[in-house]
Amino acid sequence: MSEGHQLVIYTDGASRGNPGPGGYGAILMWGEKRKELSAGYRLTTNNRMELLAVIVALESLTRQNIPLTIFTDSQYVVNSIEKKWVDGWIKNDFKGGKKNKDLWIRYYKLAKNFSIRLKWVKGHADNPFNNRCDVLATQAADKGPLLIDEGYEREIALK
Rank of each mutant, 00 (worst) to 15 (best):
K159Y: 11
F114P: 04
E32G: 12
E50C: 01
W120E: 01
C133W: 10
T45Y: 11
K119T: 10
L110T: 05
L37S: 03
P145D: 09
L147S: 14
R16V: 09
V56R: 14
K35L: 15
L37R: 02
A39K: 10
E155W: 13
C133N: 07
L28D: 02
A125K: 11
M29A: 12
A111T: 06
E32D: 15
A137N: 03
E59V: 11
L37E: 01
D134S: 14
G96M: 06
L68G: 02
E36D: 03
F129V: 09
G88R: 12
Q64K: 13
N113G: 11
G13Q: 07
V78P: 02
K143Q: 14
D102Y: 08
I116F: 05
K91V: 08
E32L: 10
R106Y: 06
R154H: 12
K159D: 14
L51N: 08
N18G: 10
G123D: 12
N113I: 04
L103A: 06
D149K: 06
K119W: 01
R132G: 13
E153S: 08
G88E: 12
D87N: 13
L43W: 10
L103E: 01
I9D: 00
S80K: 06
I27R: 06
A111R: 13
P19M: 06
K99W: 08
T45S: 10
E155V: 00
K119Q: 13
I55P: 02
K84S: 11
L37F: 00
E36H: 04
L51G: 06
L61F: 02
G151L: 07
K35W: 07
G97S: 04
N131F: 00
R154T: 14
N130F: 12
L118K: 04
S15M: 00
M1E: 13
L136T: 01
L110G: 05
I148E: 15
A157L: 14
D73I: 08
T72W: 07
D149G: 08
F129Y: 15
